[in-house]
Every structure is written in structure tokens, then in C-alpha cells.
Amino acid sequence: MIKIQKTDFDISVELKLLTTGNINIGGVASFVGLVRENSDGEEILTMTLEHYPGMTEKILQKLECEALDRWSLENLLIIHRYGELNPGDQIVLVITTSAHRSAAFESCQFLIDRLKNGAPFWKKEKTVRGTRWVEAKEEDREADERWQNIIKY
């Protein structure tokens, strides 16, 4: 399931929703992305996430399908927030569930690696010196590309 929302999320609530009633699940992996206070040596006052409504949903649904196709999963959840956030706030949640841990771990990393580089979000940071757009990182592009080269499971 995909959710793109302004509001915060509660991982324990989401985890319960995802697992309740499914006794085939043997393992759950999750990733939560947070707003760091420090970025390139500067203190962040706020971070604003802009996205491309419509396309964001399409891209995340595509990633969901790819993960379900590639690994044997019970289900998965991606929540991505947009709007103005403060240091310490949650940005993104990925939860994957499967019978065995390796599928859950791997698909969770796959989803976060792919969405960082391929989902239409843009981050703007406000510091005491003004606002600036966050540059895409080369290491994020490489992490995404690695998945394209790995043999299908």
C-alpha cells in the first residue's frame, strides 16, 4: 500500500494494521527516514518537501509492484510525507513483511534506495542564511543503479 500525506505516521499503528490477521508473516523489516538537524555543516530550521501529485503515486505503485514481483512478500507499505517538516520529524516509512527475513530486509532496502533517486520529491532546506534546494547525491544514484544490476530473485 502507498500513502502520500502531509500528516505524521505512527509506525506501531501501521505495523499492527499490516500484520494483524496474517499468520504467514514470519518477519517484518522497516525503515524510517527522519529530518536531520545538520546538513553539510549547517543547522536546518525546516525542511520542505515538494512533490508531483499524480506522478508520485504512479512511481511508488510501480516500485511496490516491482518489489512484490521480485521477492516473496506478504505485503508492504510505503508512507511518504510532504510539506514543511522540522528536524527530528519523520519523512518516510517503508515496511515489508514476508515469511522469512531475507526477503523483508532486501525488499525494504530496495524500496528506499529506489524511491530516494526515482520518486518525484524535492527537498528544500531553510537555514539561518536562507533557503536552498537539496542536491541529489551521487551515492543515492549509485545505490539505485545497483538494484538494476542485481540478478532477479
Binding site: 527516514g33 524511491l115 526515482g118 518525484p120
Partner: peptide, 10 residues
Amino acid sequence: VALFPPMTGG
């Protein structure tokens, strides 16, 4: 058609 910089999600 949408034009934008490299994406920075996550």
C-alpha cells in the same frame, strides 16, 4: 510535460 532537477526523495 514536467521539467525538474534530479529528485531528492526519502
